[in-house]
């Protein structure tokens, strides 16, 4: 029942980042995607501001300006940071992906446990010739997404993963 606290918790280095970066075109894709999202937000903000009574406008104004500034800053920073932090690697027997721009999400699964490999291209992604590769295991908690790969790379990775996982026996649970 008992839990003992450790006497000291030394700082530890995080895992090495996976070897490969995503396609450089991903920066423009994320920027465009973020911009489209921001336009919707701005539209809603202006519409709300237009319709609320004057008394409310006085204190709602600064709040909205703060939100505006935040979205602008986010537009400027997010794609670049995200590009630097999104990485992936497939070794002989394991797949490792890192995502997140403020948070960090590192996912590892052995290829022997992989069940399906999907490739997906949204309409916006096709403009930039990008594709997501999703690797699923028998656990709903562990899908690994290699986001925004160059389509050629994505095809190669998918083919390679399919080849390796095809050799696995058993039901991979």
């Amino acid at each position: 029942m008992t839990v003992t606290q450790p006497s000291s918790v030394p700082d530890a280095a995080p895992l090495h980042e996976p070897a490969h970066q995503v396609s450089p075109r991903a920066v423009r894709y994320w920027a465009l995607q973020g911009f489209l999202g921001a336009v919707v937000v701005w539209g809603v903000l202006f519409a709300v501001y237009w319709f609320v009574p004057d008394g409310v406008q006085r204190w709602l104004g600064p709040v909205f300006v703060a939100i505006l500034v935040y979205t602008v800053v986010e537009q400027a920073l997010e794609p670049i940071i995200r590009y630097r932090r999104t990485r992936w690697e497939v070794t002989g027997e394991r797949v490792f992906a890192q995502t997140g721009w403020l948070s960090r999400d590192q996912r590892i699964a052995p290829l022997s446990r992989v069940q399906t490999v999907d490739t997906e291209r949204g309409p916006l992604m096709r403009i930039f010739r990008l594709a997501n590769v999703t690797v699923t295991t028998a656990s709903a908690a562990g899908p690994i997404r290699l986001t925004c790969l160059d389509t050629d790379v994505a095809d190669r990775v998918t083919a390679e993963l399919a080849r390796v996982t095809g050799q696995t026996r058993g039901d991979a649970t």
Partner: peptide, 17 residues
């Protein structure tokens, strides 16, 4: 029975290790 691992660090968690 462990298939794989996810190490997730939120912004505040990263600062605290």
């Amino acid at each position: 029975g462990v298939i794989g691992w996810v190490v997730h660090q939120g912004l505040f968690q990263r600062r605290l290790g």
